[in-house]
Design a protein around this nucleic acid. Structure first.
Lengths: 351, 351
DNA sequence: CTGTTAGCGCCTTCAG
DNA sequence: CTGAAGGCGCTAACAG
């Protein structure tokens, strides 16, 4: 005699069928896009479902459908704020649509992934994959997924953007708008700290910056564009370089918040007032942006929306017949420029 | 004819059994803690598993065991660094032991949870629950779990600590050691910024601070202990208060990194050099700690270890007979004091 | 120590 | 439009 009444805590499809006076099959049909069921019958079944508070057993469903109902997330992003928001967004949407998310992370370089990706794809039984940056641009990963012929959605991919479905933000446009904000404040000497050259978003942001300057008829000055690698440390070096120039910029736009935080740090050390003498802008609106004084003017990505869109695209691809074009759908979501305390009109005695 | 060969991409238990020349049941036994199987047989089965790269179908297993194999994580922690590390630790361990993690988050107050917790527990079919702080101290949640009679592990609970199994760090000891570090540097006037009074860890950290002062024979000065609420903003106010004292402290120990970051920000604004004129220490070793200049001396919690321990405790409780004492096991893990650049010996012309 | 039998809850296939 | 039969892959329960 089992004491733990674990045999399906609630009602089963059979219970619902009995209550509604139909067969289990009919209930199943109602559950799975109620097609080919007479409206009256459907009503009755739905009433029974509500009354019994029936919840389908996912394991049984998955077993019968020969689908794992698992989606794999391939990621490696050192930014915990981004990761946690992405994860939560993905999981919430996954749960709504009956999938489960499994997280995979092998390392930060293409090579590290190359070693394990084939094994992972063959031994796990994912119905599909979501690939977050920068993994979404790792050759070894992309080709392994192609080889395995798995449905896949990439987030913010740069290379061969139309190989799989993808979701991205318009980083170029956002960077352009942020730059315009700085120009509108009267700044004319703008410094820019680029991100990792291999990271796709990095090029987009730089391109947007340049476009805005061009729009304003300002000539690009090479010395005002410095390379960073998205890390705080690299931001320190970049800021040091910009702020030691004979004629330093009056505003610096960094490709992410961590590097912008570094600019604020270096400025403080040098006795340069932010934003009084130097406006600073970041990108991403991470936790860092508001854990800093002054709080950062930055760009906010709609991460939760992207996560939701990624899951939707993937489930569509999973359920589509092969060769249908949903597998290459591209979705572009807009970013929001958030103005806080680190940017202000240029000081009258300069620029 | 289905083109998508989804019928269990790999081998089944039957294939393994055939290859090993045994019955499926024996393979099953090897899989589930190979007990009551002759070593030689076990060897053969394991060889077959390896050769076929067999991976058990979780859905089938879950269906047969009448277990969902789902663990719910009840959490609401505004700190993304903590959350992401916890999540990743939990998921990794879950995967190793064949469970899946489902994330639930209703809001930041006891009241918000009260509204939905019963519905959640009755309609989801979790085999067990892991509850992270501060939800681990929400009355409505705790009593709902008791009512539902679900196996549960709490992380860092404060109230009724032995109601369920729990995992915690020794925050008091860690705070005491950090305070001793500051004392060893020669500081005698130490400021302390407390965290949310309702948050259990907060009291522990304060208690450790006081204990260390007592150890050193230093009298507590009420004005040097200021209330915060773990947020950056509250840290700003607290720092402002401490640093405007007629005789300000030479070192400030904040109950978390965000508030320590606020101290650094206020100090910079006031022209106080950190660490030259003021040593600062935080707690948690979040991303913030190293995205700041100077990088923070802080306390690192073994979050991944805690996550692993929580999962282990929970699976033990799930598999135990009711009334066994594993359900109340307590695990206490040590923290690490990490010394970076925000603390240094007290300036000779002061203290 | 090992095999047999009988489902777990649901869905696919094929008849009505 | 609906129902009956059978099976997905695995594991309890019971034999031997």
């Amino acid at each position: 005699m089992r004491t733990r009444a674990n045999k399906q805590s609630g009602a089963t499809i059979k219970d619902v069928a009995d209550l509604a006076g139909v067969s289990a099959m009919t209930v199943s049909r109602v559950l799975n896009s109620g097609h080919r069921v007479r409206p009256a019958t459907q009503e009755r079944v739905e009433a029974a479902i509500r009354e019994l508070n029936y919840r389908p057993n996912l394991s049984a469903r998955s077993l019968a459908k020969a689908r794992s109902l698992f989606i794999g997330l391939l990621y490696n992003n050192p930014n915990p704020g981004y990761v946690s928001e992405l994860l939560i967004g993905l999981m919430n949407r996954c749960r709504q649509v009956g999938y489960h998310l499994v997280i995979e992370n092998f390392g930060s370089t293409d090579e590290e992934w190359a070693a394990d990706i084939d094994g992972l794809l063959s031994s796990s039984n994912f119905d599909g994959l979501i690939v977050a940056p920068p993994v979404s641009d790792f050759d070894s990963v992309i080709s392994a997924i192609e080889r395995a012929d798995l449905p896949c959605v990439r987030i913010a991919p740069e290379q061969e953007p139309d190989l799989f479905a993808s979701v991205r933000t318009d980083d170029r446009d956002a960077a352009r708008r942020m730059t315009r904000h700085l120009l509108d404040l009267g700044h004319r000497r703008l410094g820019f700290i680029a991100g990792d050259a291999g990271h796709g978003a990095s090029r987009q942001r730089m391109s947007g910056f340049c476009a805005a300057l061009e729009d304003a008829g300002i000539e690009l000055e090479d010395a005002l564009i410095v390379e960073g690698r998205f890390t705080y440390r690299s931001g320190l070096a970049a800021a040091e370089k910009l702020l030691s120039m004979p004629e330093p910029p009056t505003a610096i736009f960094a490709s992410n918040d961590d590097m912008a935080a570094a600019v604020v740090g270096v400025a403080a050390r040098k006795g340069i007032d932010v934003p009084g003498q130097l406006s600073v802008a970041g990108f991403d609106d991470t936790h860092t942006a508001t854990t800093l004084w002054p709080q950062l003017t930055t760009v906010r990505q709609p991460i939760a929306d992207m996560a939701g869109a990624a899951v939707d695209l993937l489930t569509a691809a999973i359920n589509a017949e092969p060769d249908q074009d949903v597998a290459q759908t591209q979705r572009l979501l807009p970013c929001e420029v958030i103005i806080r305390d680190s940017s202000c009109p240029v000081a009258p005695d300069r620029g």
